[in-house]
């Protein structure tokens, strides 16, 4: 097995400073956040430009070229509800360090994001969800199968569909947590890749608690076979946990300096 793939989540238009930088095409704040995430061990960077209804394609092209030229063709996840923007981003994307990731499809209104990924030889994050949150793992698996079949019919490799179980918030859905972990195990048993917005589990918790809860969640999820997550790589405790789990899983050869590599 390969190492756990960390997708850095900090280039998101939901953060006001990033949104402003995207709007004004100001490279400095974007590059700074990107560098912080890469230095901390992020493999992919998520580029969430928001809905970007007006200038999505131009903005995504600008962001892809900015990041890849500055950081040796860093692989990126292109994250927006504007499909034309994703396609525009891929049109200028350099694949030498990894395929682009389309973020994201689901089994309902956004199922055609799979078509987009297939047409562009990209990876797609496939959220195991229809309309609303899946009631149980049977339903999640049904959505997973629907999307897997669609991707394969369009000529995708199964390994390029990264299934997202949808991490649920503990404060409110505490009783569903083990179900999510069991679903990750089901994906893993099918040798499918998986990812997701892991820190959703600790939403609404005090700031000092979140890294602890996220670290516990990632360790349990990795034990069940999670292969990637969209996280804040500048959460040191979380990254140390991921690196340690990669050692325990024999995804990476141990050396005393493993936390610093």
């Amino acid at each position: 097995m390969g190492k756990f793939v960390v997708i850095g989540e900090r280039l998101s238009a939901t953060a006001p400073s990033v949104n402003k930088a995207f709007t004004e095409r100001d490279p400095e704040p974007i590059l700074k956040r990107a560098k912080q995430q890469l230095d901390a061990g992020s493999t992919y960077l998520d580029v969430n430009i928001g809905p970007a209804e007006n200038d999505g394609p131009e903005l995504m092209k600008w962001a892809v070229q900015l990041l890849q030229s500055e950081f040796d063709n860093v692989p990126l996840a292109l994250d927006t509800a504007n499909k034309a923007a994703i396609e525009a981003g891929i049109s200028v994307y350099n694949r030498s360090k990894g395929k682009p990731i389309v973020n994201s499809a689901d089994a309902a209104g956004r199922i055609d994001y799979i078509d987009l990924a297939a047409a562009n030889d990209a990876i797609v994050i496939a959220l195991c969800n229809g309309e609303g949150i899946a009631a149980n793992n049977d339903e999640r698996m049904m959505y997973c199968q629907t999307m897997l079949e669609r991707g394969m019919e369009l000529g995708m490799e199964a390994e390029d569909l990264w299934f997202d179980p949808l991490f649920l918030v503990i404060k409110g859905m505490q009783d569903k947590q083990m179900q999510i972990l069991e679903f990750i195990k089901m994906l893993s048993d099918m040798e499918l890749n998986s990812t997701g917005g892991l820190s959703n589990n600790s939403n609404g918790m005090p700031k000092h608690i979140r890294p602890i809860m996220d670290s516990a969640m990632v360790a349990m999820a990795m034990a069940n076979g999670l292969t990637s997550a969209i996280v804040n790589p500048n959460d040191l405790r979380l990254m140390e946990t991921i690196k340690s789990c990669d050692i325990i899983k024999n995804n990476n050869l141990y050396a005393d300096s493993y936390l610093e590599i």
């Binding site: 050869l253 141990y254 050396a255 005393d256 300096s257 610093e260 590599i261």
Partner: peptide, 11 residues
């Protein structure tokens, strides 16, 4: 010692 081999390269 494979772990030391890697560590030495890192250092």
């Amino acid at each position: 010692d494979i772990n030391l081999a890697k560590q030495l390269n890192v250092l």
